[in-house]
Every structure is written in C-alpha cells, then in structure tokens.
Design a protein around this nucleic acid. Structure first.
Length: 501
DNA sequence: TTGCCTTTGAAGTCG
DNA sequence: CGACTTCAAAGGCAA
C-alpha cells in the first residue's frame, strides 16, 4: 500500500508499502490477454469519454488524461466536479428522492489535511467530498443531490467560481456553493463549523433515500449551528440532532425502505411510522478500496456492459492494484477522513455493533468447515504444517483462488510464517483438490467437479495468486491478501498492503 | 426473500 | 500478538 510520507502519527488506514513486484513467467501471456481486453476497454473508453462528456458523466473522466490529472489533484477536481453533482442532485430531486444505497451518499469529512503533499490546507482542503452516489456520480466529488437553488437561494461560495466546469465544456450556472445543497446555511454558518466538521459544510450529503429513525447521539458540539438545516424530509423522520443526516445510518430495513421511496417518490407515512420504531443501523465507513469501487464501478459497468458486481469487483480489484502509489494514497487518505468523520459522528459506535448479524450462519459455516477437508486447518494437517505458524496458501483463500478459477492450477505452496518456503510442499494434485474441494461440501473435488465454477467467472482476469514467499516479507499481509500480478502499463509495480497496525 | 458471489481494507474476535 | 472472521458496496443470480 502506499506509504504516505506525511503520515505523521495518524495512520492512513494502514502503514502500507508499495512493493516492486515481478510476476511469474506466465504473466506476460496474461498481460497480452489482458492487453486485448484493455484495448477493447480503451476503445470503449474513448467513446465513452466523448459520450459522457456531453452527458457530464464523471464516470468517464478517469479515462481522460486530463481527468486523471485532475484526480491527482483532489482539491482541484473537487472544485471542477462540484457543479456536475449538484446538477445530478437536481435531477435526483426532480424525481423526488435521491436514489441510491443508503450509504451511497456517504459524505466525507473534509478535515484539515495534514497529508497533503505540501502540508498546506487550502480553503478547500476541508471541503473534499469523497463519495458519490453509486450511479454515474463521481465518488471523489461531492454528492450534491440538492442544489442551493432549491434550498439555499443564491448563496455562493466564496471559494468556488461561478462557472467552474469550463474544462468540461459544460457551462454551469451558478449553482456552486460550499454550503450543502440541502442545508440552508446562513451567511457565516460555515465559519462556525470547525474544520473537523467540515463535511457538514460540504454539499456532499445526498438526501438519504430513507428517513433516519432516531436522532443520532449528539456528540457534535456544533449542533446549534446545524439545527438550522431545515430540509423537511430530513427533519421529518429523525436524524442527528445536529440536523445532519448521515448515509451511514440506515434503517434496519433500509433497502426495503429505499425501494419504498424510490417507487413512490413520496414518503408514505404509514409504513414509515412502523419502521420508525426500528433501530437504525450505522454502517461501517468505507475503506479505500470501497471508495475506489464506488467511483469506478459505473465506469467499468459502462465499459464492459456488465452489471454483475462479482465480475465488476474482480476488474476493480485488478485495477486497484494497477493504480499508482499516489493514486491509491488518495483513496487511503479519503478513507482515513471518512473514518474520522464516522468517529466524530458516532463516537460510541463500533464495528462490533454490526457484528454478529450472520453469527448463526457463520457458526454453521464454521461447523461445516470443521468437516471440510479444504479448510486451512485440515490442509495444514494434511501437509504436515504447523497449525500455529504455517498456512496453506491454497486454502488460505479457498474460495477466492483466482488463479485456480482461471484454470491455471494451484496458486501457491505452503509458506511458513517467516515467509520461507516449506520443504516438501503439497503436490499439485493435493493442492488442487484442496482448493476445489472448497467448493464442495463433503468431498475432495476434482478439477472436473470444479469446471463449472470457472464458467461463473465471465471476466477472466490476469490475477495471479502469487506463490509465497511474499516478496515484501510481510507474511502477515501476504497471507491475508494474495499477491496479485496486474496486467498494466506498469506491471513492474505492485502494491502490497500491510496491516500497518 | 434471502444469501452468495467478488474484491480490499478496517476492525472485530479468538486462541 | 497473530490468525482468522466479519462487514462495508454493488447487482445479478440461485435457491
């Protein structure tokens, strides 16, 4: 993972490091295969860029070198993108409610950014919205489902030009404001917000597609300031006492409720009342990769005309590894900010709160795994490995062995905790059976048994689960995240996240 | 209707 | 403390 030089004391999600990585021999072949796909994608990209530019679709921006450059300058890109999403928000509003996951509008806390390369904090440095709606809205741009034209008449940001989207050739009327589109802030209101509360000054919070059922525990001292936010939909169904809804909060039946709103475009009091009794669920903040996925998903879908998330995610995972250190660092930074925001909003919240939802099922699974010959424990025993210090590469990720999915055989050999190869690694057959049996319930599967599984993957990738030892020596990380070789223009680079904790 | 798939990373649990 | 597990998003798909 990217190692930020300016990390200071605070972790950037993880103290990751980038490891130069040379893949195995077959990598070239894979790269060629991938190159074909990439070329196709590139063609699609170029067409998409043209198309999307006219549509102001941020998704295609990444295909544009200029867009890439902008992405490398978060502050700038946010400024430039802002109007787009405000416009998006207008569209959403026109349809009644913002449609998206309960979390898709997760706003980001734009804190003073000690991680900026120059260490400076521009007026916009705390206005960097991170996530966007899942569909067609740039995630690195503010989620601005609602325009100030609707809720904050004529308040213009002193920081943003009236027309900041000239680069995209689309004139934007003066919709720009660093005031949340649906938060009507009085002049000077933002100034009352501490930097750490900067997200609230962002137009990043889409109106949740569902109401919040309970007031947030108010740990925010700035509540008085925000109590002025008076969007009727926000205030009608419960929210943070500050008046700021947070997408991380969703009703237990959030999906259903969203559908309810989406279909009717109007809040319907009856079912709403019923659900108000239910406790809201505060979801985990998104990590760097999740943020990246949110940003890129629409683009990949458009390029590949795929909608199956599993396949999309495979592609995104590959692209994630193809990102440069700097590019990844941006997402780590954004994720860090989001965690900070989350912590500030919900001081008492813990990921533990959402733990155990599937506890029963997990237990059942664990029981199954005890009888599963492909379980890491069983495989370690089979290969004579130390249960405490060794791990069986294949079984470590028994359900995600991409290489095996690609029909390339077993992915790795057992590795000791110090990263050194273990003598007498399992035979390919053993390993192969070990992996494939992970897909079967009670017997060691053969490759033939596994064949149909390969068909599940509509997007063969060049992802290879590297054999250990981990080139980084970070066996811990290596064991939890397989090395992935990526067919990219810079295939010599490979990022290896470390736990960093 | 529910859960799986699939990805990475953060954070939880467990031994 | 390290290993392992769960959850976060997404939407198609199968049971």
């Amino acid at each position: 993972m990217p190692q930020l030089s300016s990390g200071g004391g605070d972790d950037l999600g993880a103290n990751d490091e980038m490891i130069a990585f040379k893949d195995e021999g077959e990598q070239e072949e894979k790269i060629q295969e991938n190159a074909f796909t990439e070329r196709d994608l590139a063609d699609l990209k170029s067409s998409l860029v043209n198309e999307s530019e006219s549509n102001s679709s941020p998704a295609a921006a990444a295909a544009d070198p200029e867009a890439i450059r902008r992405v490398q300058d978060p502050q700038r890109v946010y400024q430039e993108k802002l109007p787009d999403h405000m416009e998006d928000g207008i569209k959403h509003q026109d349809t009644g409610m913002y449609k998206g996951s309960a979390y898709s509008g997760y706003p980001f806390l734009m804190l003073s950014d000690p991680y900026l390369p120059n260490g400076s904090m521009s007026p916009l440095s705390n206005k960097v919205p991170v996530v966007q709606p899942s569909h067609g809205v740039h995630p690195l741009t503010p989620l601005i489902p609602y325009s100030n034209e609707h809720f904050s008449h004529g308040s213009h940001s002193p920081h943003l030009p009236a027309d900041i989207n000239q680069k995209q050739g689309v004139h934007r009327p003066s919709q720009t404001s660093d005031i949340p589109g649906f938060y009507s802030l009085p002049p000077g209101g933002v100034g009352q917000i501490t930097p750490s509360m900067g997200w609230q000054s962002q137009s990043v919070y889409p109106l949740p597609s569902c109401g919040f059922r309970q007031p947030y525990s108010s740990a925010l001292s700035a509540g008085a300031t925000f109590s002025r936010f008076t969007h009727p939909l926000m205030l009608s169904s419960g929210m943070h006492t500050t008046g700021i809804p947070h997408p991380a909060i969703v009703p237990h039946s959030g999906k259903q409720e969203m559908d309810h709103y989406d279909r009717t475009m109007k809040p319907q009091p009856e079912p709403k009342r019923e659900k108000e009794a239910k406790k809201p669920t505060i979801k985990k903040p998104l990590n760097a990769f999740m943020l990246y996925m949110k940003e890129m998903r629409a683009k990949v879908i458009a390029e590949c005309t795929l909608k199956e998330s599993a396949a999309i995610n495979q592609i995104l995972g590959r692209r994630w590894h193809a990102l440069s250190r700097e590019e990844q660092a941006k997402y780590y930074e954004l994720a860090r900010k989001e965690r900070q925001l989350h912590m500030q909003l919900y001081p008492g919240w813990s990921a533990r709160d959402n733990y155990g939802k599937k506890k029963r099922r997990a237990r059942e699974k664990q029981q199954d795994s005890n009888s599963d010959p492909a379980s890491p424990k069983k495989c370690r025993a089979r290969f004579g490995l130390n249960q405490q210090t060794d791990w069986c590469g294949p079984c470590r990720r028994k359900k995600k062995c991409i290489r095996y999915l690609q029909g390339e055989g077993p992915c790795s050999s057992p590795v000791s905790s110090d990263g050194s190869a273990i003598d007498s690694p399992p035979s390919p057959l053993d390993t192969l059976q070990c992996i494939s049996s992970a897909f079967t319930s009670d017997k060691l599967a053969t490759p033939a048994d596994f064949a149909h599984k390969e068909q599940r993957n509509p997007f063969p990738t060049s992802i290879h689960v590297k054999s250990a030892p981990c080139s980084s020596g970070l066996t811990t990380h290596c064991s939890s995240t397989p090395h992935v070789s990526v067919a990219s223009s810079d295939s010599s680079k490979y990022s290896v996240p470390s736990t960093g904790t």
